[in-house]
């Protein structure tokens, strides 16, 4: 069994929002992550799957130390992130890299491709002169921009979105990191181009043995890339397990609702539905319990509405945060 390389221990993060000037919203708190614990094993691709606003990007930003947790700890190889200073922090910034969602914004438009990819090497003083040049060229080749010589002098605006994302990957990988956070790296690209990026990520893992946290809204992409996945909803982890288990035998009503909602290539009639999603949110109740209570068809009024279910083991390597995992649930199909 491989060891965990990354650990989140009861991590919470809250953002303060400004109120809107015209009375729509009052100033308030957005709980992006609530007491999230998870382990990513060395060498695996771990998928964090959730909708927008679920907290998945916040988790990624905490790991690369673009944000700090409000409570709880993030550990990489046993080192607590919040204690890193000076040289150890700089080393951390080399070992952990992030690939951002939007390659149109993550590359500096004024830097040529060579300048973009060489910059991290220069900052971390990893190589100089000829060796530096060779590293850059070989990395550009590795991400499939071939021949690399024909790309190094171009600028981002001369590349397609998919090519830019490959440059962003090269820029992250050129530091030979241990851990990479890939935040929806294909959501701005055409579906047909995504496969290319997926395969580059798989190739990177194979060649460099890196560990990857793959953040996505797409269960299909997670199935293709990931060994294990965690489903996140409103800052809570709902279900963790191997990608195959979670997708083919989902236990949490929310995971089931996600799977029901996926396009079925016009075969919807032939595929049985879980039907765990309420058409409309529950009315007249306050949601203090399970984060999915308001939309869950299977919820038990008293228990699910009042208590937050913890992420409990239900099998080897399998965790679900639900009082009634996998079965029909408490109150059954009644709406409210």
């Amino acid at each position: 069994m491989p060891e965990p390389i990354l650990k989140l221990e009861e991590v919470s993060k809250t953002y303060r929002t400004k109120g809107s000037m015209f009375g729509g919203r009052a100033a308030g708190l957005v709980k992006a992550l609530q007491c999230v614990s998870l382990e990513v094993l060395k060498g695996e691709i771990f998928g964090l799957v959730g909708e927008s606003g679920s907290g998945k990007t916040t988790a990624g930003r905490l790991i690369v130390k673009l944000e700090s947790p409000e409570s709880g700890r993030v550990l990489l190889n046993g080192e607590v992130l919040s204690t890193l200073r000076g040289r150890r922090l700089k080393a951390y910034r080399r070992r952990v890299q992030m690939i951002f969602q939007d390659p149109y914004q993550s590359l500096n438009p004024q830097l040529s491709i060579y300048e973009s990819v060489v910059e991290p090497i220069t900052i971390h003083r990893l190589a100089a002169g000829r060796e530096r040049m060779e590293r850059v060229l070989s990395m550009i080749q590795t991400v499939g921009l071939s021949p690399p010589e024909s790309f190094v002098n171009r600028y981002p605006h001369q590349l397609s979105g998919g090519q830019r994302q490959r440059v962003a990957i090269a820029r992250a990988m050129v530091l030979e990191p241990d851990f990479v956070v890939a935040d929806e790296p294909t959501s701005m690209l055409d579906a047909s181009y995504s496969a290319k990026i997926f395969n580059i990520i798989l190739e990177m893992r194979k060649r460099f043995g890196i560990t990857i946290l793959f953040i996505t809204h797409s269960l299909a992409a997670a199935r293709y890339l990931c060994d294990r996945i965690a489903v996140i909803y409103r800052g809570h982890l709902m279900e963790v397990g191997t990608a195959a288990e979670v997708i083919h035998h989902p236990l949490h009503p929310y995971t089931r609702a996600l799977i029901d909602a996926l396009p079925k290539f016009g075969l919807a009639e032939q595929i049985p539905r879980y039907n765990t999603l309420l058409e409309e949110e529950r009315a007249g109740v306050e949601a203090v319990g399970c984060p999915f209570f308001m939309r869950c068809r299977k919820a038990h009024r008293t228990q699910c509405g009042r208590e937050v279910p913890g992420l409990e083991p239900v099998g080897p390597g399998r965790f679900v945060a639900c009082f009634f995992p996998g079965n029909g649930g408490g109150a059954g199909g009644k709406g409210s």
Binding site: S160, Q163, A191, S192, Y193, S194, A195, K196, F198, N199, S218, L219, A220, A221, R223, Y224, A244, I247, I259, L262, K264, F265, L267, I271
Partner: peptide, 23 residues
């Protein structure tokens, strides 16, 4: 065919995705 082969789905056996080469 290439479009379909490059598209990840949840149905059926997990298969390798084949990207469309070139631009």
């Amino acid at each position: 065919r290439a479009l379909l082969a490059s598209y990840p789905t949840l149905a059926g056996e997990k298969r390798d995705l084949v990207p469309i080469p070139g631009e």
